[in-house]
């Protein structure tokens, strides 16, 4: 592991950059999160291989339309976040605030839709202990759900701080960090959606 990170080594041409946008500490965190999700996804897939019937049966009870809506919502939020970063790079902080709020709104919409799905399961008496499929479905989606909450809070804080004039074209590492984190949350769902809802 290279712990010796020098800030001076960065050439200005983007094609030569070595490190991703945002704080490197956050990228280490992203790596850890992605590892956990990778293990979770493979655990799902390999357990499914032993209970194909069971998984197919209960997969059919899930609401694919909600999942579609949620995927579009997350992608849209990610797009808004990209626009927020683009705006602050051009020093248009008012625009950045607007894009961030829109992204927060999208995150909230995701939570509403997913919450509606959970309410449905709860009413049907489905819990983590109902069967192996629901165990994985609820564990994976709830773990992701909490990530959306965290991501939403991060975007919210960034929106407030941008509004207070904390960031500029010259210094906006935090926004890039928050954006990277949000894209990670999106990325995970991009794999989760087909795996849990579609692939059978």
């Amino acid at each position: 592991m290279d712990m010796h990170i020098k800030t001076t080594e960065q050439p200005t041409r983007p094609a030569q950059r070595r490190y991703p946008p945002g704080d490197l500490a956050l990228w280490i965190f992203i790596l850890a999160e992605l590892s956990v999700f990778a293990v979770f996804f493979s655990a799902y897939a390999f357990t499914r291989a032993q209970h194909v019937e069971l998984f197919s049966t209960y997969q059919a009870t899930l609401d694919c339309n909600s999942a579609l809506a949620n995927t579009l919502v997350l992608i849209t939020a990610s797009f808004f976040v990209v626009r927020a970063v683009a705006a602050i790079q051009r020093d248009r902080s008012a625009e950045t605030v607007r894009w961030l709020w829109l992204a927060v709104l999208m995150a909230g919409l995701f939570l509403l839709i997913k919450g509606h799905e959970y309410a449905h399961h709860l009413a049907a008496g489905v819990t983590l202990s109902t069967n192996t499929f629901y165990m994985f479905y609820l564990s994976l989606t709830f773990f992701h759900f909490m990530h959306v909450i965290l991501g939403m809070l991060v975007l919210l804080v960034l929106a407030v701080r941008t509004r207070r004039g904390h960031y500029s074209a010259a210094e906006h590492t935090d926004i890039e960090s928050g954006a990277s984190y949000w894209h990670m949350v999106d990325l995970v769902w991009i794999v989760l959606f087909p795996l849990v809802y579609v692939m059978r």
């Binding site: 800030t7 080594e9 960065q10 704080d23 490197l24 956050l26 590492t173 890039e176 960090s177």
Partner: peptide, 13 residues
Amino acid sequence: MSQAFTKAMARNI
């Protein structure tokens, strides 16, 4: 953009 790896971010995480 200079590369950052800050104590503040590590603490927040």
